[in-house]
Amino acid sequence: MTYCLRIADIPTNERPRERLIAYGPKSLATAELIAMLLGTGQGPGKLSAVGLGQYILQKLGENQRDPLEVLREMSPQELMEIPGVGPAKATTILAAIELGKRTFYSRPPERKEIDSPEAAAAALSHELMWQPQERFALLLLDVKNRLIGTKLLTIGTATETLAHPREIFREVLRHGATRAIISHNHPSGSLEPSPEDIQLTRQLLQAGQLLQIPLLDHLILGNGDFQSLRQISGLWEEYPQGD
């Protein structure tokens, strides 16, 4: 069964693109996913994009074949034999299939373990060490202290930057991290923590206890060196992180 209803005639909240945004790609039928790639319809009976997607699946499924299995091995020329599929549509579909294959077979890189303040400072030095403005960055770690990624949160003036605990833990949660290290630089080269640095660290340690997301350290970088607040302060004894 195919249908000729135009995408523009479908209520906005029921259109494939809007449903994908609201509910994710798994909420769409295969024909709707193909329609997202086609962009426009046509073919026999001037089908809509979704209708053309259904028609393509029907043609590929002839002789009781699995249409997706057939599609995985098709050439552009074979796909263009289907009415309504020209070079642009064929190459877009096959490019998406190839991208899906590469994504499926790719192996994630081995995550580096951050097992010391030195390792954390090395991971952050590119973002922070020699910058003329104060920057605040975040190391995102998994449960085994392996590096998921780094996130530059704010850039301030030559002497000041701001980072709110809400923004910091939002990024931790958004990236699926289970623990974190925060860091900022002092363009002056001084590694001495300011009262504001201590107060922010205290707030983040309290939030880490509440959210059960350990904050492992707060590093200050500058002039080719670094300082670990965990090593020089008693804040982690005051607010244990369970790490």
Rank of each mutant, 00 (worst) to 15 (best):
A8E: 15
A8V: 14
D9L: 11
D9Y: 12
I10K: 00
I10A: 03
P11N: 11
T12M: 10
N13M: 09
E14C: 06
P16R: 08
E18D: 14
Y23R: 10
G24V: 03
P25F: 12
S27F: 10
S27N: 12
A29E: 14
I34F: 06
I34P: 01
A35G: 07
L38W: 02
G39R: 08
P44F: 04
S48I: 08
S48M: 08
V50A: 01
G51V: 04
Q54G: 12
Y55E: 02
I56D: 03
K59Y: 03
L60T: 04
L60I: 04
D66V: 01
P67C: 05
L68M: 15
L71W: 07
R72L: 13
R72A: 14
E73A: 13
S75D: 06
Q77K: 10
Q77P: 01
E78Q: 12
E78G: 05
L79E: 01
L79I: 03
M80N: 09
M80K: 08
P83S: 06
P83D: 05
G84K: 10
P87Y: 05
P87C: 01
A88K: 14
A88R: 13
K89W: 01
I97M: 11
E98A: 11
L99T: 13
R102S: 10
T103P: 00
R107K: 13
P109R: 05
R111D: 01
K112V: 15
E113Y: 00
E113P: 09
D115K: 12
S116G: 07
A120C: 06
A120T: 02
A121D: 07
L124W: 02
L124Q: 00
S125R: 14
H126D: 15
M129K: 04
W130K: 09
Q131Y: 06
Q131H: 07
R135N: 07
R135T: 08
R135A: 00
F136A: 12
A137K: 05
L138F: 03
L138V: 06
L139W: 09
L141T: 04
D142F: 00
K144A: 14
N145L: 12
R146Q: 15
R146S: 06
L147M: 07
T150N: 11
L152D: 08
T154N: 15
I155Q: 08
G156R: 07
T157V: 05
T159Y: 01
T159G: 06
T159C: 03
T161H: 07
A163D: 09
H164D: 15
F169P: 10
F169Q: 09
R170C: 06
V172D: 02
G176M: 11
T178R: 13
R179E: 14
S183D: 08
H184W: 06
P193T: 12
E196H: 11
Q199D: 11
Q203C: 08
L204K: 01
L205G: 03
G208H: 06
L210F: 11
L211N: 10
Q212A: 12
L215H: 05
L216F: 02
L216H: 04
D217E: 09
H218C: 14
H218P: 06
I220S: 09
L221W: 00
F226G: 05
F226W: 12
F226Y: 15
S228I: 04
S228C: 07
R230S: 05
Q231E: 13
L235Q: 09
P240R: 04
G242E: 05
G242H: 07
